[in-house]
Amino acid sequence: MTARYAILVRHGAYHQKPGTPSAFQPFPLTEAGKAQASDVGRELAALAAENGWALSPEVFCSRQQRAWQTATLLSQSLSELTGTAYTVTEDEALAERSVGAFANLTIPEIEQILADDPRYAVPPEDWKSNSHYKLPAQGAESLLEAGGRVAAFLTARLEALTTASDATAQIFVGHGAAFRHAAHHLGVLAFDDIRKVSMHHAKPVVLKFSPEAGWSHETGAWKQRQLLETGLD
């Protein structure tokens, strides 16, 4: 079987509510984010041509507006450059780590609710970036659980390429923390490195899968990050 490539693209810069976990924030891209999304479409066209990858004409993204906009704009750029019609498919499997019923509350609001509710213990100080911690709210996930969900989706979609398409590379537009934890589940990123890196807005990180060697990092730089960042997108 020919090697297959998962092209991971974090969404562009967007209008984010400050001091709030980013997972389900519904806001659109900024003007800078729109430019980033169009630029990455041109970058992916060049990258595919340089490496001889056949891009799948279906681009997958999460259901958050920032990811959908990024996928749509990069698809438009790709179509203009290649003459191929690209379509965008949203899938909840690519969402960032869910904070469940606490979605779109600020960090102080979440912590105050936990402090006031006798059912819950005070969360660890690093709860926002702790890979194992899951908020005690309906629908919440840990970062590792979110990464496992994304890793399973990446694997399934590359398997689908093998059986039903001539394409060798699949584009996924999603979220930094979920992609990083997925990379860990796939054996590409060591656990201790998850918190040391992030992803640049609208810049690809490409993972390769081959039957002989499994998953590996092919190209595209992780962003070195400050450990004081939240790790929530």
Rank of each mutant, 00 (worst) to 15 (best):
R195T: 12
I107F: 05
P108E: 10
R97N: 03
V173L: 03
F153V: 03
A178T: 02
R149V: 04
F102W: 11
G147F: 15
I107W: 02
H181M: 15
D91K: 08
A151R: 09
S198Y: 07
P123L: 15
R195D: 12
A169Q: 00
Y86K: 09
A202V: 12
A182K: 00
N130E: 00
D166T: 14
A103F: 04
L78E: 07
N104Y: 06
T84A: 10
V122Q: 10
D91F: 05
I110V: 15
T89V: 14
A140I: 02
F153H: 09
L189F: 05
T106N: 05
T106L: 03
Q76T: 14
S142R: 06
L189R: 07
G176I: 01
N130Y: 00
W127H: 02
G83V: 03
S77A: 08
F172N: 00
L114S: 05
A71N: 07
S77N: 13
A93P: 02
V150Q: 01
P108C: 10
V99W: 05
P136N: 03
A137K: 13
L189W: 02
T89L: 14
K208E: 11
A140K: 13
E90R: 15
A101I: 04
P136D: 05
L105E: 03
L158H: 11
G139P: 01
H201S: 12
R195C: 05
D91L: 14
D91N: 15
I171R: 03
I113S: 01
A151G: 05
H184N: 11
Y86R: 07
S79P: 00
R180V: 12
L207R: 14
G187S: 15
S165L: 15
E90L: 14
A103V: 03
V206T: 13
F172I: 00
A151D: 06
R180G: 06
G187H: 13
I194P: 05
P204F: 03
V206R: 09
S75G: 10
V197W: 09
F209D: 13
Y86G: 08
R149Q: 06
G187V: 15
V99G: 05
G187Y: 08
S79V: 02
A190S: 15
G174E: 01
P136L: 02
F191V: 07
T155C: 07
L158M: 07
A146T: 11
H184A: 03
A151C: 13
I171T: 07
A140W: 04
Q76Y: 01
D192P: 02
K208C: 07
G187Q: 11
F191G: 02
R180S: 09
T72V: 08
K134A: 07
P123Y: 12
A121Y: 08
E145T: 07
K208A: 08
L143V: 00
H181V: 01
K134M: 15
E212F: 01
L144N: 04
E145N: 12
P118K: 06
L94M: 02
H185G: 01
A101P: 11
S142I: 14
R157H: 04
D126H: 07
R195V: 14
S98I: 00
G187M: 13
H181S: 13
A164E: 08
I107C: 01
S98G: 01
R119Y: 08
V173F: 00
R157C: 02
